Simulated assay, not measured.
Amino acid sequence: MFFSQAGARPQMWEVSPSEHKKWVEVFKACDEDNKGYLSREDFKVAVVMLFGYKPSKIEADSVMSSVDPNTSGILLEGFLNIVRQKKEVQLYWNEIRHIFTAFDRHYRGYLTLEDFTKAFRQVAPKLPERIILEVFREVDQDSDGHVSFKDFEYAMNYGQKDPRKRLCLAPGSVNSASS
Rank of each mutant, 00 (worst) to 15 (best):
T112G: 04
K44A: 11
V26H: 04
P10R: 11
P69T: 04
G109P: 04
E19P: 12
Y37G: 04
F2V: 10
V89S: 13
P17L: 13
I96R: 08
E14S: 08
L50H: 05
L91Y: 06
K44S: 13
G73R: 14
K126L: 02
V47M: 14
K165C: 04
R130Q: 00
I74G: 08
E19D: 15
R108K: 12
I132V: 15
S56R: 00
F27K: 12
N157H: 06
D42S: 13
K87W: 05
S4I: 00
G109E: 03
D104Y: 02
D104A: 00
R137E: 01
V123S: 10
F149S: 06
T71A: 09
P171K: 12
Q11M: 06
F116P: 09
S173E: 05
A124K: 13
L38K: 11
D162R: 14
S4A: 07
S65Y: 06
E153H: 11
K21L: 07
K126E: 03
K21R: 11
S16N: 08
I96L: 10
I132F: 04
F120Q: 06
Y154I: 03
S148F: 07
K86Y: 02
E59M: 14
S65A: 10
R137H: 00
P55L: 08
S148N: 09
D142P: 00
E59V: 09
K22D: 05
P69L: 03
V63H: 07
R97E: 01
A124T: 08
S178M: 12
M12T: 11
E88Q: 15
Y158T: 04
K150G: 03
F116R: 13
N157Y: 04
G7C: 01
Q122S: 12
K22W: 03
S173Y: 07
A124Q: 13
F2M: 14
K44T: 03
H98A: 03
V147Y: 07
H20D: 10
T117C: 06
H20G: 05
R105P: 06
S39N: 10
A177F: 09
E19M: 15
D140H: 09
P125D: 07
L91R: 15
K57M: 02
A155S: 13
E32I: 06
Q11F: 05
C30T: 11
L169H: 08
Y53S: 13
K21Y: 03
S143E: 04
D162K: 13
G7E: 04
I82F: 13
E19Y: 11
S18K: 14
D42L: 08
G73V: 06
V47W: 08
E59A: 10
W23P: 12
V83A: 15
G78P: 07
E134R: 13
K35Y: 02
Y107T: 08
A8Q: 05
P17R: 12
V45Y: 00
